[in-house]
Design a protein around this nucleic acid. Sequence first.
DNA 1: TAGAGAGGCACC
DNA 2: AAACGGTGCCTCTCTA
Length: 608
Amino acid sequence: MQVITYNIRRQTVRINVVETVMDLWGFIDFVEANPVMGFDTETTGLDYWNSDRGFRIRLAQFGNAVESWVLPAELGPEFREAAAWALRKAHRIIAHNGTFDQNVAEWCLGVPLEETGPKMLCTKITAHLVDPRQVKERGPGLKLEELTKFYISQELAEEVKGSMARIAKRYKVKKDDIWPVVRLFDREYLLYAGMDPILAYRLFHILYPLIPLRSKRKGLFSWEHRTAYITAKMVRPGYLLDAEYTAARIAELKAEQQHWEAEAVKYGVENVNSDKQLIEAFTGFGVKLTKKTAKGNLSMDAEVLDSIDHPLAEAVKKATKAGKWRKTWFEAAFNGQDSQGRVRASINSLQARTARMSITGSIPAQTFPAGDGYVRHCFLADEGHVSVSIDFGNMELRVMAAASGDPIMLEAFRRNEDLHNLTAIAAFGPMPEGAEKHPMRKAGKGTNFTVCFGGGAGAVSSQWGIAEDDAKTAVKAFWDTYKGVKAFSEKLQKEARRYGGIYTATGRWLPVDRERAYAALNYYIQSSARDITVRALIELDKAGFTPWMRLVIHDEIIFSFPKERSAELTEQAARIMEFVFKGLLIPADGEIGMQSWGSVLELEESKH
DNA sequence: TAGAGAGGCACC
DNA sequence: AAACGGTGCCTCTCTA
C-alpha cells in the first residue's frame, strides 16, 4: 500500500492507495466505518457507453473529510468488485456531477442506476441551489475546481486544477489525451484522484447548510436529485441512429460545402469562415460595411451578407452553413454511435442560472433546426415503436399570466383567445371587419415574446422586423394593457435590487444582477416553466413512463412508445403532464409520428 | 500548442 | 422610463 499525505489549510489528509488484494482489508474497514462517503472515478474518457470497446474505469476513489482510498479498478475484477461492494454498502454517496460516476458504476462495475441513484448526494446540484451563477457571471461556478477555490482554498484549487495539465506535459500528450495513458500509480495522478472524493465530501458539508431555508422547506434538494436520476434513466437506452440517412446527409453537405467554397475561391476568399478575409474582399469590391459587432469591429453576420448583392455573399452563406450543420448535428450523431448503433445525449438536469437543463453530446437536441425533420430523422424510436412528442402550449406566456395574476391575460387564456391578436388590438385598434387575424398580429406576437424575455421596443423592432414606431406603440400598449404583469415585474425588480435575487414558487433562489434588475421577470418565468416541465417528468416517472422517455427539450418531452399502444399512452402522458399553475391550466398536447423523430414534424406539417 | 476571447448561429 | 433572457458548439485569431 502507498500512502500519500497532503495538507489542506494545515490539516493533514491521507490518501491510501490500494496496490494489492491484501490492502483491501483496510478499505473494508473504512467503508464499514463510513456510511456516507465521497466518491469519484477516473476513466479513459467520457464515453462510458463504449465499455465494450475501449472505455474503461481506471481508478475508483472513496473518501471522507480527511482520508481517501484509491482502488486500482483497472487492475482486476477483485478491485472492481470491492468498489461495487462499497457503493452498495454505503448509505449515501457524495459525488460531484454524480450522474457521470453513476453511469461508470453501471457500465464498468455492474452497479445499476437503480442502486446508486436513490442515495446520491451531488455537490453540483447542491452548489446550484446555493448559487447557480457561473464564474463568468461573477458567481462561484459549478465545477469542482471552481467550488474548491470559492469555498475551500484557492491554492488547493489551483494545485489540483493544474496537476493534470502538468502530468500531460510530462507525458508529452495533449491535456485531453492524458486519461488513458497516464501510469496508474503515477504519484501526481494518485494525488489528483485521491483528493477528489475528499473535496466532494467537504464541499457537500459546506454547501448543504448554505441552501436557503425556503428551498429546503419546499423539498427542492431531493426534488433535483430525483430529477437527475430520472434524466439519467432516460439517457440510458440511447437513441437508435438511422446511420444510412445520417451518412447520406453528411456526404450531401460535404459536396455542397466544397462546391460553394470553390466559388468563394474565385473571388479570392480561401477561407469562408474568416471574417477578416471576407471584410477585405468585400471592401475591395467597393462594398460599404457599416454594421458593428458588440466590440466595435465590422460585422459579417447573416444580416450583412443578405444585404450584399454579390455572388460571393451567397457562396459564403451556403458554404459556412453546410459545414456547420454537417459537423454540429450529423457528424456529432454519426461519430457518437456505440457498438449497437445507438447514440446518447448528455442531459445536465440542472444547468442554467434559471435551472434550465442543457443537452450536450451526440444529440444536442435543444438546437436542432425547427420546422421540419431534417435533423431529427436521424433518430429512431425502438423497433416496433413510434416517436411521440408531447409539448406544453404557450408555456412561458401562460406562466407570465398566472404568476402575475394579470386579469386580462388570464381571461384571454381561459377563453382560448389569441393573445398576440389581443396585444395588436390594444396597440393598433380593433380588427378589421371580417379579418381572421389582426394585420399587426406579428407586432403583437413579437411584443409578447420580447417582453417575456426582458426586452423593449428596440428589441421588438430589430428581432421581429417591426418598424420602430410600431414597436414603441406595441410595447407601450403591452404595459398599459397588462397592468398586472407590470406590477409583477416591478415587484420582482424591487426584490432583486433589495436582496440581490428573487425566489420562485418552487422556493428556488435566483440571483439577479442589480444593474440588470429588469431580467428578474424573465428569470422567474423561464425558471418556473422549467420546473413545470420537471414536475411532469417526476409524475411521468411515478406513473411508469420512464422506460419510454427519451429527451426533454424545454417545454417538450420525446417518447418512444410501442406502436399499438401509442394513442393510449400519448393521451395518458399528456394528461399527466398538464398542470394548473396558480389557477391557470398549462395544457399539453401530443403528436404521434412514425419510427423517426423527424416524422412527428412531417405528419404535423401535412395536417395544415 | 493550448486556451481564451470574439463572432456567429442553432434553439426555446 | 427603458432595459431581450437562457443555452451549446463551431471557427478564427491572438497570446503565452
